[in-house]
C-alpha cells in the first residue's frame, strides 16, 4: 500500500507529517476556544436572565 518514496522518503513524510500536525493543532485549538467561548457566554446569559 505504501508508495515507494525512494531516497526522498524523509522529505515527503516529514512535510506531510508536520503539515497535518499543524492543521490538526490549529483545528483543535480553534474548536477548544470556540467551546470555551460558547460556555462562557451561556453562563453569563443565564446569570443575567436570573438576576434581571
Amino acid at each position: 500500500m505504501m508508495p515507494d518514496l525512494g531516497k526522498y522518503a524523509d522529505a515527503v513524510l516529514s512535510a506531510y507529517g508536520v503539515s497535518i500536525l499543524l492543521i490538526m493543532l490549529l483545528v483543535i485549538i480553534t474548536l477548544r476556544k470556540g467551546r470555551a467561548a460558547r460556555a462562557a457566554l451561556e453562563a453569563v446569559e443565564t446569570r443575567s436572565k436570573k438576576n434581571g
Partner: peptide, 15 residues
C-alpha cells in the same frame, strides 16, 4: 468558526 468565537467572547464581556 473563529469569528463566531470572537463574537461570543465579546458579547460575554459586554454582558
Amino acid at each position: 468558526y473563529r469569528t463566531g468565537t470572537e463574537i461570543r467572547l465579546r458579547r460575554a464581556r459586554a454582558l
